[in-house]
Design a protein around this nucleic acid. Structure first.
Lengths: 254, 254
DNA sequence: GTAGTTCGATTGTCCGGACATACGCATTGA
DNA sequence: TCAATGCGTATGTCCGGACAATCGAACTAC
Protein backbone atom coordinates (compact mmCIF):
# COMPACT_ATOMS: atom_id res chain seq x y z
CA UNK A 1 0.00 0.00 0.00
CA UNK A 2 1.42 3.27 -1.09
CA UNK A 3 0.78 6.41 0.86
CA UNK A 4 -1.46 8.97 -0.83
CA UNK A 5 1.27 11.63 -0.83
CA UNK A 6 -1.13 14.47 -1.53
CA UNK A 7 0.38 17.87 -2.10
CA UNK A 8 -0.72 20.05 0.77
CA UNK A 9 -2.53 23.33 0.32
CA UNK A 10 -0.58 25.89 2.26
CA UNK A 11 -2.15 28.60 4.36
CA UNK A 12 0.24 31.42 5.05
CA UNK A 13 -0.45 34.89 6.23
CA UNK A 14 -0.13 37.42 3.49
CA UNK A 15 -1.07 41.03 3.62
CA UNK A 16 -0.89 44.08 1.43
CA UNK A 17 -0.50 47.72 2.28
CA UNK A 18 -2.88 49.79 0.21
CA UNK A 19 -1.29 53.05 1.28
CA UNK A 20 2.06 52.00 -0.11
CA UNK A 21 3.07 53.27 -3.55
CA UNK A 22 4.32 49.76 -4.34
CA UNK A 23 1.84 48.03 -6.65
CA UNK A 24 -0.35 45.50 -4.90
CA UNK A 25 0.49 42.69 -7.29
CA UNK A 26 4.15 43.35 -6.68
CA UNK A 27 3.76 43.32 -2.91
CA UNK A 28 2.03 39.98 -3.21
CA UNK A 29 4.52 38.44 -5.59
CA UNK A 30 7.38 39.49 -3.36
CA UNK A 31 5.76 37.95 -0.33
CA UNK A 32 5.12 34.74 -2.20
CA UNK A 33 8.65 34.65 -3.49
CA UNK A 34 9.97 35.24 -0.02
CA UNK A 35 7.77 32.43 1.30
CA UNK A 36 9.19 30.09 -1.31
CA UNK A 37 12.75 31.15 -0.62
CA UNK A 38 12.20 30.95 3.09
CA UNK A 39 10.62 27.52 2.92
CA UNK A 40 7.14 28.43 4.11
CA UNK A 41 5.90 27.34 0.72
CA UNK A 42 7.46 23.95 0.17
CA UNK A 43 8.07 22.56 -3.31
CA UNK A 44 5.07 20.77 -4.70
CA UNK A 45 2.60 22.44 -2.39
CA UNK A 46 -0.52 23.95 -3.89
CA UNK A 47 -1.11 27.64 -3.59
CA UNK A 48 -4.87 27.51 -3.10
CA UNK A 49 -7.23 28.83 -5.68
CA UNK A 50 -7.00 32.36 -6.95
CA UNK A 51 -10.55 33.33 -6.14
CA UNK A 52 -10.26 32.49 -2.50
CA UNK A 53 -6.79 33.98 -2.25
CA UNK A 54 -8.08 37.21 -3.73
CA UNK A 55 -11.00 37.28 -1.31
CA UNK A 56 -8.74 36.60 1.62
CA UNK A 57 -6.47 39.51 0.73
CA UNK A 58 -9.24 41.85 -0.31
CA UNK A 59 -7.86 41.97 -3.85
CA UNK A 60 -9.41 41.28 -7.19
CA UNK A 61 -8.56 38.16 -9.12
CA UNK A 62 -6.69 39.97 -11.93
CA UNK A 63 -4.36 41.46 -9.37
CA UNK A 64 -3.68 38.10 -7.76
CA UNK A 65 -3.20 36.55 -11.18
CA UNK A 66 -0.69 39.22 -12.10
CA UNK A 67 1.31 38.46 -8.99
CA UNK A 68 1.24 34.73 -9.65
CA UNK A 69 2.04 35.17 -13.32
CA UNK A 70 5.22 37.06 -12.53
CA UNK A 71 6.43 34.13 -10.45
CA UNK A 72 5.44 31.69 -13.16
CA UNK A 73 7.59 33.73 -15.54
CA UNK A 74 10.44 33.42 -13.09
CA UNK A 75 10.00 29.66 -13.08
CA UNK A 76 9.06 29.45 -9.41
CA UNK A 77 5.45 28.37 -9.91
CA UNK A 78 3.59 26.15 -12.32
CA UNK A 79 -0.08 26.54 -13.11
CA UNK A 80 -2.28 23.67 -14.18
CA UNK A 81 -5.80 24.22 -15.32
CA UNK A 82 -8.26 22.29 -13.25
CA UNK A 83 -5.59 21.47 -10.70
CA UNK A 84 -4.11 24.58 -9.20
CA UNK A 85 -0.88 26.47 -8.88
CA UNK A 86 2.04 24.73 -7.24
CA UNK A 87 5.57 25.52 -6.27
CA UNK A 88 8.18 24.05 -8.57
CA UNK A 89 10.35 21.47 -6.92
CA UNK A 90 13.10 23.94 -6.28
CA UNK A 91 16.40 23.69 -8.14
CA UNK A 92 15.46 27.00 -9.67
CA UNK A 93 17.70 29.76 -8.48
CA UNK A 94 18.11 32.52 -11.01
CA UNK A 95 17.33 32.48 -14.68
CA UNK A 96 20.07 33.76 -16.90
CA UNK A 97 20.53 37.48 -16.72
CA UNK A 98 22.58 39.83 -18.73
CA UNK A 99 25.24 39.83 -16.12
CA UNK A 100 28.48 41.62 -15.83
CA UNK A 101 31.53 39.70 -14.83
CA UNK A 102 32.19 42.27 -12.16
CA UNK A 103 28.81 41.78 -10.53
CA UNK A 104 29.11 38.02 -10.79
CA UNK A 105 32.42 38.01 -9.01
CA UNK A 106 31.26 40.42 -6.38
CA UNK A 107 28.17 38.33 -5.72
CA UNK A 108 30.43 35.34 -5.26
CA UNK A 109 32.41 37.27 -2.67
CA UNK A 110 35.54 37.34 -4.77
CA UNK A 111 36.37 41.05 -4.43
CA UNK A 112 37.27 41.61 -8.08
CA UNK A 113 40.02 43.97 -9.09
CA UNK A 114 40.45 45.61 -12.45
CA UNK A 115 43.56 46.86 -14.17
CA UNK A 116 42.95 49.17 -17.09
CA UNK A 117 45.51 48.50 -19.78
CA UNK A 118 44.16 50.74 -22.53
CA UNK A 119 41.54 53.49 -22.47
CA UNK A 120 41.63 55.56 -25.60
CA UNK A 121 39.89 56.53 -28.82
CA UNK A 122 40.78 54.47 -31.90
CA UNK A 123 39.58 54.01 -35.47
CA UNK A 124 36.92 51.33 -35.75
CA UNK A 125 37.93 48.06 -37.36
CA UNK A 126 35.53 46.47 -39.80
CA UNK A 127 34.17 44.07 -37.22
CA UNK A 128 33.73 46.68 -34.50
CA UNK A 129 32.17 49.12 -36.94
CA UNK A 130 29.65 46.51 -38.05
CA UNK A 131 28.79 45.56 -34.50
CA UNK A 132 28.36 49.11 -33.25
CA UNK A 133 26.75 50.45 -36.37
CA UNK A 134 29.33 53.16 -36.98
CA UNK A 135 31.32 53.85 -40.16
CA UNK A 136 34.48 51.81 -40.59
CA UNK A 137 37.48 53.84 -39.57
CA UNK A 138 35.28 56.19 -37.56
CA UNK A 139 36.20 57.00 -34.01
CA UNK A 140 35.25 54.55 -31.27
CA UNK A 141 36.47 54.14 -27.74
CA UNK A 142 38.62 51.15 -26.87
CA UNK A 143 39.08 49.73 -23.42
CA UNK A 144 41.35 46.86 -22.50
CA UNK A 145 41.16 45.56 -18.97
CA UNK A 146 42.54 42.73 -16.94
CA UNK A 147 40.18 41.34 -14.34
CA UNK A 148 41.78 39.77 -11.29
CA UNK A 149 40.43 37.76 -8.42
CA UNK A 150 42.56 37.04 -5.38
CA UNK A 151 45.39 38.79 -7.18
CA UNK A 152 45.38 36.26 -10.00
CA UNK A 153 44.43 37.25 -13.54
CA UNK A 154 41.11 35.72 -14.46
CA UNK A 155 40.03 37.37 -17.67
CA UNK A 156 41.16 39.78 -20.34
CA UNK A 157 38.40 42.13 -21.45
CA UNK A 158 38.56 44.16 -24.63
CA UNK A 159 35.61 46.45 -25.26
CA UNK A 160 34.64 49.03 -27.84
CA UNK A 161 32.02 51.71 -27.31
CA UNK A 162 30.47 54.26 -29.64
CA UNK A 163 31.99 57.73 -29.23
CA UNK A 164 30.53 60.14 -26.70
CA UNK A 165 28.27 57.60 -25.09
CA UNK A 166 29.93 57.57 -21.73
CA UNK A 167 32.53 59.43 -19.80
CA UNK A 168 35.08 56.68 -19.39
CA UNK A 169 37.12 57.58 -16.40
CA UNK A 170 39.97 55.14 -15.84
CA UNK A 171 39.77 55.37 -12.07
CA UNK A 172 36.08 54.61 -12.19
CA UNK A 173 36.66 51.68 -14.53
CA UNK A 174 39.05 50.22 -12.01
CA UNK A 175 36.65 50.52 -9.11
CA UNK A 176 33.46 49.26 -10.71
CA UNK A 177 32.13 47.44 -13.78
CA UNK A 178 31.32 48.80 -17.20
CA UNK A 179 27.65 47.85 -17.00
CA UNK A 180 27.21 49.71 -13.77
CA UNK A 181 28.70 52.82 -15.29
CA UNK A 182 26.31 52.53 -18.21
CA UNK A 183 23.28 52.10 -16.02
CA UNK A 184 24.39 55.00 -13.87
CA UNK A 185 24.61 57.11 -17.02
CA UNK A 186 20.94 56.47 -17.67
CA UNK A 187 21.38 53.85 -20.37
CA UNK A 188 18.69 51.16 -20.27
CA UNK A 189 20.23 47.88 -21.26
CA UNK A 190 17.82 45.75 -23.23
CA UNK A 191 19.44 42.77 -24.92
CA UNK A 192 22.71 41.28 -26.06
CA UNK A 193 23.96 38.85 -28.64
CA UNK A 194 26.56 36.52 -27.26
CA UNK A 195 28.85 33.89 -28.61
CA UNK A 196 30.81 31.60 -26.33
CA UNK A 197 33.65 29.48 -27.65
CA UNK A 198 37.12 28.26 -26.92
CA UNK A 199 40.56 28.44 -28.52
CA UNK A 200 44.21 28.00 -27.73
CA UNK A 201 46.06 30.96 -26.29
CA UNK A 202 48.30 32.99 -28.58
CA UNK A 203 51.65 34.29 -27.29
CA UNK A 204 50.39 37.73 -26.22
CA UNK A 205 47.25 36.34 -24.60
CA UNK A 206 49.17 33.71 -22.74
CA UNK A 207 51.51 36.35 -21.41
CA UNK A 208 48.70 38.63 -20.25
CA UNK A 209 46.81 35.91 -18.43
CA UNK A 210 49.77 34.04 -17.03
CA UNK A 211 49.10 30.96 -19.11
CA UNK A 212 51.31 29.04 -21.46
CA UNK A 213 51.00 29.36 -25.20
CA UNK A 214 48.39 27.01 -26.64
CA UNK A 215 46.59 26.64 -23.31
CA UNK A 216 42.80 26.38 -23.71
CA UNK A 217 40.94 29.66 -23.20
CA UNK A 218 37.25 30.35 -22.91
CA UNK A 219 36.09 33.17 -25.16
CA UNK A 220 33.02 35.35 -25.17
CA UNK A 221 32.05 37.91 -27.76
CA UNK A 222 29.11 40.14 -26.99
CA UNK A 223 27.27 43.10 -28.43
CA UNK A 224 24.87 44.87 -26.09
CA UNK A 225 21.92 47.01 -27.11
CA UNK A 226 19.86 49.53 -25.22
CA UNK A 227 16.09 49.75 -25.43
CA UNK A 228 16.20 51.96 -28.49
CA UNK A 229 18.08 49.24 -30.32
CA UNK A 230 21.31 51.17 -30.38
CA UNK A 231 24.48 49.13 -29.89
CA UNK A 232 26.15 50.47 -26.77
CA UNK A 233 29.03 48.07 -26.37
CA UNK A 234 30.95 45.36 -28.15
CA UNK A 235 33.23 43.13 -26.15
CA UNK A 236 35.75 40.45 -26.85
CA UNK A 237 36.66 38.60 -23.70
CA UNK A 238 38.94 35.71 -22.89
CA UNK A 239 38.76 33.77 -19.64
CA UNK A 240 41.05 31.29 -17.98
CA UNK A 241 38.89 28.17 -17.89
CA UNK A 242 40.52 26.91 -14.71
CA UNK A 243 39.32 30.08 -12.96
CA UNK A 244 36.03 30.81 -14.61
CA UNK A 245 33.11 29.17 -16.36
CA UNK A 246 29.67 30.38 -17.38
CA UNK A 247 27.00 29.16 -15.01
CA UNK A 248 23.37 29.85 -15.65
CA UNK A 249 19.90 28.58 -15.52
CA UNK A 250 17.43 28.68 -18.33
CA UNK A 251 13.71 28.35 -18.52
CA UNK A 252 11.72 26.83 -21.30
CA UNK A 253 9.35 29.46 -22.48
CA UNK A 254 5.88 27.95 -22.71
CA UNK B 1 18.98 72.48 -38.93
CA UNK B 2 18.38 68.89 -38.07
CA UNK B 3 15.40 67.03 -39.47
CA UNK B 4 12.68 66.26 -36.90
CA UNK B 5 13.00 62.49 -37.44
CA UNK B 6 9.72 61.72 -35.70
CA UNK B 7 8.88 58.07 -35.21
CA UNK B 8 5.83 57.38 -37.34
CA UNK B 9 2.64 55.89 -35.99
CA UNK B 10 1.87 52.91 -38.15
CA UNK B 11 -1.59 52.02 -39.34
CA UNK B 12 -1.82 48.42 -40.43
CA UNK B 13 -4.81 46.26 -40.94
CA UNK B 14 -5.31 43.80 -38.17
CA UNK B 15 -8.27 41.57 -37.61
CA UNK B 16 -9.34 38.85 -35.26
CA UNK B 17 -11.58 35.87 -35.78
CA UNK B 18 -13.92 35.50 -32.87
CA UNK B 19 -15.14 32.10 -34.01
CA UNK B 20 -11.62 30.69 -33.85
CA UNK B 21 -10.62 28.71 -30.79
CA UNK B 22 -7.32 30.55 -30.79
CA UNK B 23 -7.32 33.17 -28.03
CA UNK B 24 -7.88 36.68 -29.28
CA UNK B 25 -4.80 38.11 -27.61
CA UNK B 26 -2.74 35.39 -29.24
CA UNK B 27 -4.17 36.08 -32.67
CA UNK B 28 -3.26 39.72 -32.23
CA UNK B 29 0.23 39.11 -30.92
CA UNK B 30 0.95 36.77 -33.80
CA UNK B 31 -0.19 39.32 -36.33
CA UNK B 32 1.90 42.00 -34.72
CA UNK B 33 4.92 39.75 -34.60
CA UNK B 34 4.44 38.85 -38.24
CA UNK B 35 4.16 42.54 -39.11
CA UNK B 36 7.45 43.20 -37.34
CA UNK B 37 9.17 40.27 -38.97
CA UNK B 38 7.78 41.17 -42.34
CA UNK B 39 8.78 44.78 -42.06
CA UNK B 40 5.33 46.35 -42.02
CA UNK B 41 6.15 47.59 -38.55
CA UNK B 42 9.53 49.22 -38.89
CA UNK B 43 11.89 49.54 -35.95
CA UNK B 44 11.27 52.64 -33.91
CA UNK B 45 7.74 53.11 -35.12
CA UNK B 46 5.02 53.68 -32.58
CA UNK B 47 2.19 51.23 -32.28
CA UNK B 48 -0.60 53.71 -31.57
CA UNK B 49 -2.29 53.85 -28.26
CA UNK B 50 -3.93 50.82 -26.74
CA UNK B 51 -7.34 52.35 -26.31
CA UNK B 52 -7.75 53.24 -29.93
CA UNK B 53 -6.24 49.95 -31.07
CA UNK B 54 -8.70 48.08 -28.92
CA UNK B 55 -11.59 50.11 -30.30
CA UNK B 56 -10.46 49.55 -33.85
CA UNK B 57 -10.35 45.78 -33.38
CA UNK B 58 -13.46 45.57 -31.28
CA UNK B 59 -11.44 44.21 -28.36
CA UNK B 60 -11.09 45.33 -24.79
CA UNK B 61 -7.96 47.03 -23.59
CA UNK B 62 -6.86 44.15 -21.31
CA UNK B 63 -6.90 41.82 -24.28
CA UNK B 64 -4.83 44.19 -26.37
CA UNK B 65 -2.47 44.72 -23.47
CA UNK B 66 -2.01 40.99 -23.07
CA UNK B 67 -1.05 40.70 -26.72
CA UNK B 68 1.39 43.57 -26.49
CA UNK B 69 2.84 42.32 -23.23
CA UNK B 70 3.74 38.98 -24.74
CA UNK B 71 5.77 40.75 -27.40
CA UNK B 72 7.40 42.97 -24.81
CA UNK B 73 8.44 39.80 -23.00
CA UNK B 74 9.95 38.54 -26.22
CA UNK B 75 11.94 41.75 -26.52
CA UNK B 76 10.24 42.89 -29.71
CA UNK B 77 8.47 45.89 -28.26
CA UNK B 78 9.24 48.51 -25.64
CA UNK B 79 6.58 50.40 -23.71
CA UNK B 80 7.13 53.89 -22.37
CA UNK B 81 4.61 55.49 -20.12
CA UNK B 82 3.33 58.73 -21.52
CA UNK B 83 4.98 58.01 -24.86
CA UNK B 84 3.67 54.82 -26.36
CA UNK B 85 4.74 51.40 -27.48
CA UNK B 86 7.41 51.13 -30.12
CA UNK B 87 9.18 48.44 -32.04
CA UNK B 88 12.68 47.73 -30.82
CA UNK B 89 15.36 48.61 -33.33
CA UNK B 90 15.66 45.06 -34.48
CA UNK B 91 18.80 43.04 -33.78
CA UNK B 92 16.53 40.86 -31.69
CA UNK B 93 16.09 37.49 -33.22
CA UNK B 94 15.45 34.82 -30.66
CA UNK B 95 16.07 34.91 -26.96
CA UNK B 96 17.96 32.00 -25.58
CA UNK B 97 15.97 28.82 -25.48
CA UNK B 98 16.64 25.51 -23.91
CA UNK B 99 17.83 24.19 -27.19
CA UNK B 100 19.04 20.83 -28.24
CA UNK B 101 22.16 20.59 -30.30
CA UNK B 102 20.28 18.43 -32.76
CA UNK B 103 17.61 21.06 -33.35
CA UNK B 104 20.21 23.81 -33.61
CA UNK B 105 22.12 21.97 -36.26
CA UNK B 106 19.02 21.05 -38.19
CA UNK B 107 17.81 24.66 -38.10
CA UNK B 108 21.18 25.68 -39.51
CA UNK B 109 20.68 23.22 -42.35
CA UNK B 110 23.57 21.02 -41.28
CA UNK B 111 21.85 17.66 -41.45
CA UNK B 112 23.23 16.28 -38.20
CA UNK B 113 24.10 12.64 -37.82
CA UNK B 114 24.40 10.74 -34.58
CA UNK B 115 26.44 7.69 -33.75
CA UNK B 116 25.43 5.94 -30.55
CA UNK B 117 28.52 4.62 -28.80
CA UNK B 118 26.97 3.41 -25.58
CA UNK B 119 23.34 2.86 -24.59
CA UNK B 120 23.05 0.85 -21.41
CA UNK B 121 22.17 0.81 -17.73
CA UNK B 122 24.97 1.56 -15.29
CA UNK B 123 25.44 2.29 -11.61
CA UNK B 124 25.20 5.99 -10.82
CA UNK B 125 28.41 7.78 -9.94
CA UNK B 126 28.34 10.22 -7.07
CA UNK B 127 28.04 13.22 -9.36
CA UNK B 128 25.32 11.73 -11.54
CA UNK B 129 23.40 10.51 -8.52
CA UNK B 130 23.47 13.97 -6.99
CA UNK B 131 22.36 15.62 -10.20
CA UNK B 132 19.50 13.22 -10.89
CA UNK B 133 18.44 12.82 -7.30
CA UNK B 134 18.87 9.05 -7.20
CA UNK B 135 20.86 6.97 -4.71
CA UNK B 136 24.55 6.61 -5.44
CA UNK B 137 25.22 3.30 -7.08
CA UNK B 138 21.57 3.00 -8.11
CA UNK B 139 20.69 2.17 -11.67
CA UNK B 140 20.68 4.95 -14.24
CA UNK B 141 20.79 4.90 -17.99
CA UNK B 142 23.92 6.00 -19.78
CA UNK B 143 24.12 7.21 -23.34
CA UNK B 144 27.25 8.18 -25.16
CA UNK B 145 26.88 9.67 -28.59
CA UNK B 146 29.02 11.25 -31.24
CA UNK B 147 27.38 14.07 -33.16
CA UNK B 148 28.61 14.63 -36.67
CA UNK B 149 28.01 17.33 -39.23
CA UNK B 150 29.15 16.90 -42.82
CA UNK B 151 30.67 13.62 -41.76
CA UNK B 152 33.04 15.33 -39.32
CA UNK B 153 32.76 14.76 -35.58
CA UNK B 154 31.52 17.88 -33.88
CA UNK B 155 30.67 16.91 -30.35
CA UNK B 156 30.80 14.07 -27.89
CA UNK B 157 27.68 13.79 -25.79
CA UNK B 158 27.47 11.79 -22.61
CA UNK B 159 24.10 11.71 -20.90
CA UNK B 160 22.58 10.01 -17.89
CA UNK B 161 18.86 9.54 -17.33
CA UNK B 162 16.85 8.25 -14.41
CA UNK B 163 15.74 4.65 -14.88
CA UNK B 164 12.47 3.89 -16.60
CA UNK B 165 11.84 7.43 -17.72
CA UNK B 166 12.09 6.80 -21.39
CA UNK B 167 12.29 3.96 -23.82
CA UNK B 168 15.73 4.61 -25.24
CA UNK B 169 15.80 2.97 -28.61
CA UNK B 170 19.22 3.20 -30.24
CA UNK B 171 17.82 3.55 -33.73
CA UNK B 172 15.61 6.39 -32.61
CA UNK B 173 18.51 8.08 -30.84
CA UNK B 174 20.42 8.03 -34.10
CA UNK B 175 17.62 9.56 -36.11
CA UNK B 176 16.53 12.33 -33.78
CA UNK B 177 17.55 14.28 -30.67
CA UNK B 178 17.13 13.33 -27.04
CA UNK B 179 14.96 16.33 -26.23
CA UNK B 180 12.55 15.47 -28.98
CA UNK B 181 12.19 11.97 -27.65
CA UNK B 182 11.48 13.33 -24.20
CA UNK B 183 8.87 15.76 -25.42
CA UNK B 184 7.28 13.03 -27.49
CA UNK B 185 7.08 10.91 -24.35
CA UNK B 186 4.97 13.59 -22.70
CA UNK B 187 7.68 15.09 -20.55
CA UNK B 188 7.30 18.84 -20.09
CA UNK B 189 10.74 20.37 -19.96
CA UNK B 190 10.85 23.29 -17.58
CA UNK B 191 14.36 24.49 -16.79
CA UNK B 192 18.01 23.55 -16.85
CA UNK B 193 21.18 24.43 -15.03
CA UNK B 194 24.11 24.82 -17.35
CA UNK B 195 27.79 25.35 -17.02
CA UNK B 196 29.97 26.18 -19.99
CA UNK B 197 33.72 25.97 -19.79
CA UNK B 198 36.83 24.89 -21.63
CA UNK B 199 39.70 22.50 -21.10
CA UNK B 200 42.44 20.69 -22.96
CA UNK B 201 41.57 17.37 -24.59
CA UNK B 202 42.64 14.18 -22.87
CA UNK B 203 43.91 11.25 -24.94
CA UNK B 204 40.57 9.44 -25.22
CA UNK B 205 38.63 12.60 -25.97
CA UNK B 206 41.12 13.69 -28.60
CA UNK B 207 40.84 10.31 -30.27
CA UNK B 208 37.03 10.39 -30.30
CA UNK B 209 36.75 13.86 -31.77
CA UNK B 210 39.69 13.65 -34.15
CA UNK B 211 41.68 16.26 -32.30
CA UNK B 212 45.19 16.14 -30.92
CA UNK B 213 45.86 15.72 -27.24
CA UNK B 214 45.79 19.00 -25.35
CA UNK B 215 43.71 20.74 -28.02
CA UNK B 216 41.20 23.20 -26.54
CA UNK B 217 37.69 21.84 -26.14
CA UNK B 218 34.46 23.58 -25.28
CA UNK B 219 32.55 21.83 -22.51
CA UNK B 220 28.96 22.01 -21.37
CA UNK B 221 27.45 20.32 -18.35
CA UNK B 222 23.69 20.46 -17.98
CA UNK B 223 20.95 19.10 -15.76
CA UNK B 224 17.43 19.40 -17.09
CA UNK B 225 14.25 19.42 -15.01
CA UNK B 226 10.62 18.89 -15.92
CA UNK B 227 7.80 20.98 -14.55
CA UNK B 228 7.45 18.86 -11.45
CA UNK B 229 11.04 19.67 -10.58
CA UNK B 230 12.23 16.16 -11.28
CA UNK B 231 15.66 15.90 -12.92
CA UNK B 232 15.15 14.15 -16.24
CA UNK B 233 18.60 14.32 -17.72
CA UNK B 234 22.19 15.11 -16.89
CA UNK B 235 24.62 15.69 -19.70
CA UNK B 236 28.33 16.17 -20.05
CA UNK B 237 29.21 17.40 -23.50
CA UNK B 238 32.42 18.35 -25.25
CA UNK B 239 32.52 20.31 -28.47
CA UNK B 240 35.22 21.03 -30.98
CA UNK B 241 35.52 24.80 -30.75
CA UNK B 242 36.55 25.13 -34.37
CA UNK B 243 33.22 23.57 -35.36
CA UNK B 244 30.85 24.84 -32.76
CA UNK B 245 30.22 27.70 -30.40
CA UNK B 246 27.26 28.75 -28.30
CA UNK B 247 25.35 31.59 -29.89
CA UNK B 248 22.45 33.19 -28.13
CA UNK B 249 20.62 36.33 -27.35
CA UNK B 250 19.57 37.43 -23.94
CA UNK B 251 17.12 39.94 -22.65
CA UNK B 252 17.41 42.07 -19.58
CA UNK B 253 14.44 41.33 -17.46
CA UNK B 254 12.93 44.60 -16.31
C1' DG C 1 -13.31 -5.33 -12.66
C1' DT C 2 -13.02 -2.15 -16.26
C1' DA C 3 -14.26 1.38 -19.26
C1' DG C 4 -16.91 5.31 -20.09
C1' DT C 5 -19.46 9.35 -18.08
C1' DT C 6 -20.57 13.00 -15.22
C1' DC C 7 -19.36 16.62 -12.24
C1' DG C 8 -16.85 19.75 -9.25
C1' DA C 9 -12.80 22.48 -9.00
C1' DT C 10 -9.54 25.58 -10.97
C1' DT C 11 -7.30 28.18 -14.24
C1' DG C 12 -7.83 30.58 -18.99
C1' DT C 13 -9.90 34.18 -21.54
C1' DC C 14 -12.42 38.38 -22.03
C1' DC C 15 -15.06 42.45 -20.96
C1' DG C 16 -15.81 47.58 -19.62
C1' DG C 17 -14.65 50.78 -16.71
C1' DA C 18 -11.92 53.81 -13.25
C1' DC C 19 -8.13 56.36 -11.47
C1' DA C 20 -2.93 56.99 -10.93
C1' DT C 21 1.46 58.12 -12.85
C1' DA C 22 4.99 59.47 -15.81
C1' DC C 23 6.70 61.56 -20.02
C1' DG C 24 7.05 65.26 -23.66
C1' DC C 25 5.89 69.59 -25.07
C1' DA C 26 4.15 74.17 -24.96
C1' DT C 27 3.55 77.93 -22.19
C1' DT C 28 4.96 81.01 -18.83
C1' DG C 29 7.99 83.45 -15.89
C1' DA C 30 12.51 85.26 -14.19
C1' DT D 1 18.09 82.87 -22.77
C1' DC D 2 16.86 79.56 -19.69
C1' DA D 3 14.34 77.39 -16.00
C1' DA D 4 9.83 76.33 -13.86
C1' DT D 5 5.04 75.25 -14.58
C1' DG D 6 1.03 73.20 -16.50
C1' DC D 7 -1.35 70.15 -19.65
C1' DG D 8 -2.38 66.47 -22.82
C1' DT D 9 -1.44 61.75 -23.70
C1' DA D 10 -0.19 57.26 -23.04
C1' DT D 11 0.77 53.47 -20.23
C1' DG D 12 0.37 51.38 -15.29
C1' DT D 13 -2.61 49.62 -11.87
C1' DC D 14 -6.90 47.84 -10.19
C1' DC D 15 -11.67 46.43 -9.94
C1' DG D 16 -15.78 43.03 -10.42
C1' DG D 17 -17.84 40.09 -13.16
C1' DA D 18 -18.82 36.42 -16.84
C1' DC D 19 -18.19 32.28 -19.40
C1' DA D 20 -15.10 28.61 -21.43
C1' DA D 21 -11.71 24.89 -21.21
C1' DT D 22 -9.47 21.44 -18.85
C1' DC D 23 -8.11 18.21 -15.21
C1' DG D 24 -9.03 14.75 -11.75
C1' DA D 25 -11.92 12.00 -9.26
C1' DA D 26 -16.12 9.96 -8.17
C1' DC D 27 -19.67 7.59 -10.17
C1' DT D 28 -22.15 4.54 -13.28
C1' DA D 29 -22.91 0.98 -16.51
C1' DC D 30 -21.42 -3.03 -18.72
Amino acid sequence: MVKPEVDPVVQLDLSVDRSSPVPLYFQLSQQLEAAIEHGALTPGSLLGNEIELAARLGLSRPTVRQAIQSLVDKGLLVRRRGVGTQVVHSQVKRPLELSSLYDDLEAAGQRPATKVLVNTAVAASAEVAAALGVPEGGEVHRIERLRLAHGEPMAYLCNHLPPGLLDLDTAQLESTGLYRMMRAAGITLHSARQSIGARGAGPAEAERLGETEGAPLLTMRRTTFDDTGRAVEHGDHTYRPTRYSFEFQLLVRP
